[in-house]
């Protein structure tokens, strides 16, 4: 049910850096999306919850295009050197392939289902030596899951240096852009987990899966939020040998900010330390939120070397993940 990635003998130092993200091209306000049938809630309710706009891809833009755009930003900054593995995470399993279901049905050839976006990324960015791993059963926690996996891979593959972690999701045409009372955006995020020092050192982390809630509805997802999110953070802190009082920041996903305020009180951290400034401008970008908000924290100038952060995400009512990071001198 749960697994930690804390201070095991296998885990040497691992760092996170090279943050990047990309959003769907169309920035749409609540009223417009409501008029286009993308929302379940009333626009004023979502506005009261803190949402304002969300990002939707153009019809011809794919989830892979978003992944490529985010990765290109890392490439432009010179961050793709020495990448030995790519972890490509999607919340929607359908975004884990760029294959063509219609063609597969017509030809009865399943090869058409196995056009993998992570492999395309490898060749598009000339990452010839990198292996590709797909991660598609962790819903909105996939990016944090990829940090977990990257750190584990670095621990067991002694000659690997850097792992590119990418998450990308684009909702299918006609889909509702609201899940569990949150306004959803199409988007991607990427970062690099490395053996060499970077902006953040990974201290520990923790993940919980509860398959018993695998088919949870929106109300059950809301209902499980506090108990499981609290548990995953507390257990992650325990693995790190820390307490909530040691945290300088809780970098949250873009769910209802009021819920995070309540969560802060449960955890015992000041509400001002719960960081999710992009809710209004970005919406809930599936698994990319924590990277978007982490970048915003870096850009804010409020982060100091030595600060400890908890990156926290809940996914579809059955996954919860928390990564405990510490800012290094590189953030300054």
């Amino acid at each position: 049910m749960s697994a930690g990635w804390g201070r095991s003998p296998l885990s040497g130092n691992a760092f996170v850096g090279c943050l990047a993200y990309a959003l769907g091209e169309r920035r749409i306000d609540l009223a417009t999306s409501a008029a286009n049938g993308r929302l379940r809630s009333e626009p004023r309710d979502l506005a009261e919850a803190g949402f304002a706009v969300h990002h939707v891809c153009n019809p011809t833009t794919s989830a892979y295009d978003l992944a490529r755009a985010a990765t290109a930003r890392i490439a432009a900054a010179g961050g793709l050197r020495d990448v030995d593995a790519i972890i490509y995470a999607t919340a929607l399993p359908t975004n884990g392939t760029v294959g063509d279901l219609d063609t597969a049905r017509r030809t009865r050839d399943i090869a058409h289902l196995m056009d993998f976006p992570g492999s395309r990324l490898q060749v598009d960015f000339d990452l010839d030596g990198a292996v590709v791993v797909g991660l598609n059963q962790q819903a909105c926690t996939g990016l944090l899951g990829s940090l977990h996996l990257a750190r584990a891979l670095l621990a067991i593959e002694s000659d690997w240096r850097r792992v590119l972690c990418v998450t990308a999701d684009r909702l299918p045409d006609g889909a509702m852009y609201e899940q569990a009372y949150n306004l959803i955006s199409d988007g991607a995020a990427a970062c690099v987990v490395s053996r060499q020092p970077a902006a953040f050192r990974i201290i520990a982390g923790h993940q919980i899966t509860n398959g018993g809630l695998g088919l949870a509805g929106a109300d059950e997802i809301v209902g499980a939020f506090f108990t499981y999110t609290h548990r995953v953070v507390v257990e992650a802190l325990e693995k790190a040998g820390l307490t909530a009082g040691d945290l300088d920041w809780v970098v949250a996903q873009n769910a209802n900010p009021a819920a995070w305020e309540v969560f802060a009180r449960l955890l015992g951290v000041p509400e001002s330390r719960v960081w999710l400034p992009s809710v209004a401008r970005a919406g809930h970008v599936v698994s990319a939120d924590t990277i978007i908000n982490l970048q915003a924290l870096v850009d804010s100038g409020r982060l100091r070397p030595g600060h400890r952060l908890a990156l926290v995400a809940a996914g579809h009512g059955l996954n919860w993940q928390c990564a405990i990071l510490q800012a290094t001198e590189a953030v300054s």
Binding site: R40, A258, A259
Partner: peptide
């Protein structure tokens, strides 16, 4: 705060 926030989730 939870009670107040729940008011914005009227369908919940």
């Amino acid at each position: 705060r939870l009670t107040s926030a729940a008011r914005s989730m009227r369908q919940a």
